[in-house]
Design a protein around this nucleic acid. Structure first.
Length: 553
RNA sequence: UGUCCGAUAGUAUAAGGGUAGUACAACGGUUUUUGGUACCGUUUGUCUUGGUUCGAAUCCAGGUCGGACAACCA
């Protein structure tokens, strides 16, 4: 506990409230609407809400904000729960706003009885016309002066299904000239003869967000209701309902939502990508969804670390993707076993190694791990696959890989010297001939030779094949929604490149969906769920930093 | 044109009247059987104009810029 971390503004508020005795226990909630999959922006909110109660004690509820039956589905409820658990958090209570529909109805009646709500038979267009604009006040309509009795009767008939969708609404009676447009008699109940994923056909009227969220917070005695900046202007209404209803005073605090460059974050846009087949689904590894990141190979630890590093504040932000990548590399560097895979193969023949002979070499699995992660067997033989880019016919300056006459170390094996190479009629190099130095065997090198370069390889006779899916950012511009025209005009055409036939070392045949690997010198990879024993498929989570490639762009 | 929110290196985020710090990014170097990791170093910042004060990123006032708000969505 030696490290002093500065507090974000919400932690300061909480510490003050706890120290002053305003609250004894901290209670927060994570309130997703089950109308889509959770994304990295939600992860920020999840880490915040659950993180706060982990730090200060108390608990966090999971509450599905299911007040709009036409967009919500049980499928989403399930995926959202799975994602939160996978991120490593456990909620105290699993709750639904729909659990409170009876109470919410009573709250509405109470408002009517206080002459603070009325049934309005205006059409949607009429309501909009009377609402004014941000700079002009709205106007009262004639329904506003209906009697309490009449409103009570009408609202009951709304509930009883006597009216078709859209015929009338229940509105709070506040002030049509208020500078905050949300206070201009907001609609609090609307008629929707729709089947609800939990309450079925019990209701045909559903509360609006503003008449559900704050009250739900209050019912659960949420002490700190944390949401994003777009709800700032809702806070006035939030407080108004709590005051008029005389219920537990939850308080709302707003922070800036996460924006990530080269991605879009709105559920509406992500849904479009899914529905229009731009990606393979909500869990496409290029999606910023939790399920997409999971399939891509991101770890919960790395996402939590990311959320921790981006901080919590009130100013708009655009976080660089490179920070997310840094976080996953940092975690995987410590935990992923190293293996060898050749993605763009070229044949190497070792001229002085006996035909038909092979031997078993050993490679440590992870130089960063305490016990080096143990070791594995790696077969070696006369003919190998190496990476095409590790050979240069005419070496560049400061090149210390393979070139005519040059020597390199084969990782975990011998030092080899390039003696010759073969080209096809088109001038492509098809084969590299080397000699090896028997005394240079890894771990028992008595050759006295020092080489600058080490390359990875796979024994041709022992290699397995695999499909490799190389992912990159989904968009080619930093801020797709800020560009002219449709955001889909800015998709990165190279966001997924598939290598059909890569060679991998035999050890990888035993890979399972929970394993993450570092393909030495290439990047971090994990098995994809489409993989079968006959057809292995690996996803690239993120590449390794490459100082050589960077300097030679 | 109204109300509300915000403004610190390229990107984020600290400093709560007293040396502008940290991380990522970028750049350079050391180590290295991964051109990875680790380690060291360098560059880059308080939107503006006034005021209060011995002293202002911080407090006050005006301005500028950015964002939000006119769904029977959340």
């Amino acid at each position: 506990m030696s490290e002093e971390r500065s507090l974000n503004f919400i932690e300061e508020i909480i510490e003050n409230d706890l120290n002053s005795g305003k609250y004894k226990t901290l209670v927060t909630r994570f309130p997703p609407e089950p109308n889509g999959y959770l994304h990295i922006g939600h992860a920020k909110a999840i880490c915040l809400n659950f993180g706060l109660t982990q730090k200060y004690g108390g608990y966090t509820n999971l509450r599905f904000d299911d007040t709009n039956p036409v967009t919500e589905k049980t499928e989403y409820v399930n995926s959202q729960q799975e994602d939160i658990k996978w991120l490593g958090f456990q909620w105290k209570n699993e709750l639904y706003t729909s659990d409170y529909f009876d109470t919410l109805y009573d709250f509405a009646v109470k408002l009517i009885e206080k002459d603070l709500a009325y049934v309005d038979h205006s059409t949607a267009d009429e309501i909009a016309a009377m609402k004014g604009t941000p700079t002009e006040p709205g106007k009262n309509n004639s329904y506003r002066s209906r009697s309490i009795q009449e409103n009570l009767d009408l609202f009951m008939r709304m509930k009883n299904g006597e009216f078709a969708d859209g015929v009338c609404t229940l509105r709070a009676k506040i002030d049509m000239a208020h500078t905050n447009m949300l206070m201009r008699d907001p609609i609090i109940y609307r008629i929707k003869h729709a089947h609800h994923h939990r309450t079925g056909d019990k209701w045909c009227i559903y509360p609006m967000y503003d008449f559900a969220h704050g009250q739900s917070d209050s019912i659960e005695e949420i002490t700190h209701s944390i949401c994003t900046l777009e709800y700032v202007s809702h806070r006035e209404l939030y407080d108004w309902f709590i005051e008029k209803l005389e219920i537990f005073p939850s308080h709302q605090y707003e922070f800036a939502r996460l924006n990530l460059n080269y991605t879009v974050m709105s559920k509406r846009k992500l849904l479009q990508l899914v529905n229009q087949g731009v990606v393979s689904g909500w869990d496409d590894p290029r999606m910023p969804t939790i399920s997409g990141l999971r399939r891509r190979g991101y770890t919960p630890e790395s996402i939590r670390e990311f959320c921790d590093r981006i901080g919590i504040a009130k100013r708009d932000n655009l976080i660089e993707l490179s920070l997310l990548e840094f976080c996953v590399r940092e975690h995987l560097n410590k935990t992923a076993n190293r293996v060898m895979a050749v993605l763009d193969p070229i044949k190497m023949v070792i001229s002085n190694y006996p035909e038909g002979q092979s031997e078993t070499l050993y490679g440590e699995n992870n130089p960063e791990a305490e016990d080096k992660g143990g070791s594995r067997e790696i077969p070696f033989s006369k003919t190998l696959w190496i990476e095409r880019e590790d050979f240069m016919e005419v070496p560049a300056k400061k090149w210390f890989r393979l070139a005519p006459g040059a020597m390199v170390r084969l990782k975990h094996a011998y030092i080899v010297k390039c003696e010759d190479f073969v080209k096809d009629v088109e001038g492509n190099v098809t084969e590299i001939h080397c000699s090896y130095i028997p005394e240079s065997k890894s771990g028992e090198d008595v050759s006295g030779i020092n080489v600058k370069g080490t390359i990875h390889w796979v024994s041709a006779a022992h290699a397995k094949t695999a499909e490799i899916r190389m992912y990159d950012r989904l968009f080619s511009v930093e801020s797709p929604d800020a560009e002219e025209g449709d955001f889909k005009d800015y998709l990165n055409p190279g966001s997924m490149e598939v290598i059909k036939n890569a060679y991998i070392e035999p050890y990888l045949a035993s890979a399972d969906l929970s394993s993450r690997y570092q393909f030495i010198r290439k990047g971090y990879y994990c098995l994809d769920k489409d993989s079968t024993a006959q057809h292995l498929i690996f996803n690239r989570t993120v590449g390794l930093k490459d100082a050589w490639a960077k300097g030679n762009k």
